[in-house]
Write a protein that binds this DNA or RNA. Sequence first.
DNA 1: GCAAAAGTGTTCGTTTTACACCCATGT
DNA 2: ACATGGGTGTAAAACGAACACTTTTGC
Lengths: 249, 249
Amino acid sequence: MILNSVSVDCVIFGFDKSGLRVLLNQIDKEALQQSLPEQISSDQIKKLYEQHPVLTSDRFWSLFGGHVPEDKDLDEYAKSLLFQATGLHNVFLQQIRTFGSLKRVPYTRVITVGYYSLINPDHYNLKQSSIAKSLQWFNLNELPPLCFDHDKIIEQALIKLRREVMYHPVGFHLLPEKFTLTEIQSLYEVILNKKMDTRNFRKKITNMELLIDSGKKQQNVAHRAARLYSFDTKVYEKLKEEGLNFRIE
Amino acid sequence: MILNSVSVDCVIFGFDKSGLRVLLNQIDKEALQQSLPEQISSDQIKKLYEQHPVLTSDRFWSLFGGHVPEDKDLDEYAKSLLFQATGLHNVFLQQIRTFGSLKRVPYTRVITVGYYSLINPDHYNLKQSSIAKSLQWFNLNELPPLCFDHDKIIEQALIKLRREVMYHPVGFHLLPEKFTLTEIQSLYEVILNKKMDTRNFRKKITNMELLIDSGKKQQNVAHRAARLYSFDTKVYEKLKEEGLNFRIE
DNA sequence: GCAAAAGTGTTCGTTTTACACCCATGT
DNA sequence: ACATGGGTGTAAAACGAACACTTTTGC
């Protein structure tokens, strides 16, 4: 049994040279048909299509989500969705908020609990995922047409991520195990949508004592190779608890 | 029609000399009986009472809440609950998060969306409320036995309030229209659970240019009367947007 | 040798901290 | 006159902002 009135939707963020990205799920007409109530009239369908033109296109996109089973813990269910989508366990995953406006889904009342997740690009190979074919990364600035209020959910996820990243070290979940200072900086720049001063940024982040110089350097780059760093997990946990201040410039 | 599986629970905060307080709702045995499923066996009831001893006492307490009607917007419903409990409109009200663990409510699956609200003590006279008799303020350090996971919801509300208060000027919703600097300081001290230095606190808050000296003073106090301030709503809105930094000492 | 990104220090102004005494009022 | 809380300034340290050039590497 599932709880028809409650769903979970996941905003899955990734980060690489091209910027901040979101993993979306393609919906085709058949999947849509199935999600509609059975007794729907053709008149109602017509009206539905008028109000939500995105549903008439052959393909449109949605967050990866599903209805909560009656016998599953909410957070656990969100984790299991994330596993279905990415094949990954133990990924950073947090609630955004719950979206419950009346007409957010046409023809049925569904309250959805939004979650956001931060994916390490070492794990971008999502082939293990059970529905990998219909999933695709989109640049945050070039989102395709999305169904329902999923654009708003993504927007709220970004707002939440921005706040989080300023005061807690969570952004680092978007980085590979070893990373350069420039990568962290451009991560912050992309998330906060702000250019930062390299010298000041480096001073700040090295003063935190969060980073460990791995002793290694980038390979095969057409310029001076940058040092690779990793985290001191103890300091990381401490900063997660106590908070930090990354409101720069 | 209501959505049986989704409820809203409100953590209603108040503040005065005695500190930070929460408005709770007293549940008696009859109200409890009614909320149980009808086909419950006496064996099951026995087990229920064993697992949740608080339910056996004649009186215990809960957050003010209810199940979401199918035809009501979630946020609107939370507002209407708050109105029922306090007789007040336009009160600060925000989602905490959604609590969805499997056994949080025995014998039925209920996912609850937590909200927290900040009440101005000018409005402590809650007689207009439709259920005022069963409501009572409790000091946060002296909470009575609470049903279900309502203690956890309050804890999360406090955590959320703490974070919010450090970076946004929301705490001021807990103050009367005119207030003294000492009142603001003790508000912050209570919420953040930290003593602060008076001179530094005053310097900081007056530098924000958020306060307007009303020109008036306290009356009938057995010591030097303090100045009464109110807010510059424009600056208030600006700080709400841009954030501020109240991580002191 | 040139293109591309890595890496680095100093100065100046602002903010934060630590700290102790006099003032106004009611009883 | 005393008890109670209101109100104030300064110096030292830490932090944030602004700013330009040299180094390393691959091609």
